[in-house]
């Protein structure tokens, strides 16, 4: 980690996790915290190793360059969570902060990537990206939640891109852009006044045999809306919008339970 004093630069840090199969268990061969990311090894759950990312709360600030890399090697099982929401704040510079996540899941491996929401505070500017490469026989569960503004404030500028390849083929490529200067972001085609948006992605080889059915959730617009859809490859995606993070999580959890009941999934 380096902190540079001059304008235009901030924290540059890359945290790394590598999970490998050892006998019947998963071992964390690399657990390397950096910058604002403090990585804690939690008690394993069966054969699944568990890691919690602590201390991401007061980052990223404008100008920061943050990155987390997680590699799950063949037949290993890993679950990663964060201890709290990540709050994007206005930094010493007006430049954007970047927060990049790189995930790799090897043959018959399994990764649950379940961070708490990213909150885009007024005046902040964050560019998030997540690129996941999943082997054809591997499983990935990935949740992304974006909350636009803390209580009683407008949002900052938040952009994100999620790119997922499965067995080398492009499965999902999506960008989102919200906040001031993003034309139409709050209009009737995009968020229509909702202040929380999220996605839950499940990639599983079982979907190659039998794609999931479309399901809609949350019939009352005030409580938020979600839809679970089969992708054009072995995966399902839940897309949700809600007035706040609590109702967003409820929708994603409900849809996730339905998605998880697909034959062949555990």
């Amino acid at each position: 980690m380096t902190v540079a004093g001059e304008a235009g630069t901030g924290v540059r840090a890359t945290a790394r996790i590598r999970a490998v199969r050892a006998g019947a268990d998963t071992v964390l061969a690399v657990l390397h915290g950096a910058g604002p990311f403090d990585l804690r090894r939690n008690r394993a759950y069966g054969r699944q190793a568990r890691v919690c990312v602590l201390g991401a709360m007061c980052a990223p600030l404008g100008g920061d360059r943050l990155r987390i890399e997680a590699v799950v090697e063949r037949e290993a099982r890993l679950r990663v969570t964060t201890a709290g929401a990540t709050i994007a704040l206005r930094g010493p510079t007006r430049g954007p902060a970047t927060y990049d996540v790189r995930l790799v899941v090897g043959e018959r491996g399994s990764l649950d990537w379940l961070p708490e929401p990213v909150i885009s505070a007024a005046g902040s500017h964050l560019r998030q990206s997540c690129v996941a490469d999943v082997a054809e026989t591997a499983r990935l569960v990935l949740r992304e939640e974006q909350v636009l503004g803390r209580a009683g404030e407008g949002p900052g500028r938040l952009s994100s891109r999620l790119t997922v390849r499965c067995g080398g083929r492009l499965l999902l490529d999506q960008q989102a852009g919200y906040g001031p200067d993003v034309p139409g972001w709050d209009g009737p085609a995009v968020l229509a006044g909702h202040r929380a948006a999220g996605q839950l992605l499940i990639v599983d080889p079982a979907f190659a045999a039998g794609p999931a059915q479309v399901r809609s959730f949350g019939d009352e617009p005030a409580g938020g809306l979600a839809v679970l859809v089969p992708l054009a490859g072995p995966g399902v995606l839940v897309t949700a919008v809600a007035p706040d993070s609590l109702r967003l999580r409820r929708l994603l959890d409900e849809a996730g339970r339905v998605g998880g009941q697909t034959p062949g999934m555990s």
């Binding site: 891109r161 790119t163 490529d173 999506q174 960008q175 989102a176 852009g177 009737p188 085609a189 995009v190 968020l191 229509a192 948006a197 809609s216 809306l225 979600a226 839809v227 859809v229 897309t239 949700a240 919008v241």
Partner: peptide
């Protein structure tokens, strides 16, 4: 570009 509109999809 890959920009999505959640409500259009839903």
């Amino acid at each position: 570009p890959a920009v999505s509109a959640p409500l259009l999809d839903i």
